[in-house]
Amino acid sequence: MLTKILLSHRYQLIGWILFLPFSTLLFAENYLSFSFSWLEFEFSREDGLFGNPMENFTNELALIGVFISLFLIAFSREKEEDEYIQKLRLDSLLLACYVNTFILILGTLLFYSFGYLEFMGYNMFTIQLIFIARFRWVLYKQQKSMLAL
């Protein structure tokens, strides 16, 4: 059963709580050149391209934080996780993969050079985001149609 590989329900809330600060940090780091000075270490990944051995890991922290929070949101069990919810889950995952492929092709045609790099950067999140949006939307619609009865 799929339930065995899902996280317990409480991680969903933790995911939502973590998502906002980490995504804010990611945007701040990318567009406002914000960085934590305590995350600066001596570390050379490719020796001395710019001659500065210090490397700041704010970007890495923000990216990993966003990945983990999206993971927690997407793959925590629902309060009542049953076979129908699991079907919705799998349908949404499939749809997310389809849309991701489509966006990938479109982006490859439209962007190049640094624009393409930036596009691919955002594209890392599309599967998780589309999955979460579609799954939540269907559950929400279901709830609403049931309340209307």
Partner: peptide, 8 residues
């Protein structure tokens, strides 16, 4: 199961 499942 959930009520949603029966409903569907």
């Amino acid at each position: 199961v959930s009520r949603q499942t029966i409903n569907s």
